[in-house]
Design a protein around this nucleic acid. Structure first.
Length: 228
DNA sequence: GCGACAG
DNA sequence: ATCTTGTCGC
């Protein structure tokens, strides 16, 4: 698929923050998802502290049946340290390369990190969305910012995630009794639709099928790369 | 100044 | 993210 916007590689924390402040203005909040979301791509990475290697995976599924239709992986060296609020700069280069290698452009991207639920309202999901021009959803496993009430224990239960008086995401229970997921808008999708899609992608487990596939593929790819 | 802090 | 055994529950 084509990548519409080039992404900068900052050399300092201050530079990275500056880039976020600039790109945040490009996030589109209007839902521009197709009526029928046929394919969804899950993104995830795996790291190796010793070698500084990072393996990124992009797996595209058909929403009807969750069949894998395409998958790509990329192994490279990390170029930015982990910094809360800036970790997009660590994963972005590899993720974008994996996406670029896809033959078909998906209808939606599911990211393993927050979107608007970020200190500067520009988490990984927003960054991926702006760079690809595609609708993206941010799915976090733990809270980063904001406050929220505990959602009911049943699948589908949710409570708003608020920060500084504004709703920045939704705390969504994707299975009965499991820890909830933190869903937030990345780009070109409404929070309501984002939750609907995430719930649809979680028919049996806590995490979306897309993320589960990408997570496993990234891990296996890294292990294979380290074995040689 | 003291905690909190996506992956 | 990753390091890790046993163990509770379906």
């Amino acid at each position: 698929m084509d990548i519409v916007t080039a992404h900068d590689r900052p050399n300092t924390v201050a530079e990275a923050i500056e880039i976020q402040e600039t790109l945040r203005g490009l996030v589109e909040l209007e839902d521009r998802c197709p009526q029928e979301i046929v394919t969804v791509t899950g993104l995830d990475v795996a790291y190796d502290e010793e070698s500084d290697l990072i393996a990124a995976a992009a797996v595209t599924l058909e929403t009807a049946g969750f069949r894998v239709v395409e998958k790509r992986t990329v192994v490279s060296e990390v170029s930015f340290p982990y910094e809360p609020g800036l970790f997009a700069f660590r994963e972005l280069p590899s993720l974008i390369d994996a996406l670029r290698a896809l033959d078909h452009t998906p209808d939606l991207l599911i990211c393993d990190g927050h979107g608007l639920a970020h200190p500067r309202r520009f988490g990984l999901a927003c960054h991926v969305g702006v760079v690809t021009g595609l609708p993206t959803v941010g799915v976090g496993k733990t809270r980063f910012i904001g406050e929220h009430a505990e959602p009911g224990r049943e699948r589908g239960a949710r409570t708003p995630l608020t920060d500084g008086g504004e709703v920045v995401g939704t705390v969504l229970r994707t299975q009965d009794g499991v820890k909830p997921l933190y869903v937030s808008v990345g780009h070109k999708i409404s929070l309501d639709n984002a939750c609907r899609q995430v719930l649809r992608l979680c028919p049996a487990f806590r995490q979306p099928e897309t993320t589960r596939h990408a997570d496993r593929l990234a891990r296996d790819t890294l292990k294979e790369a380290l074995a040689r």
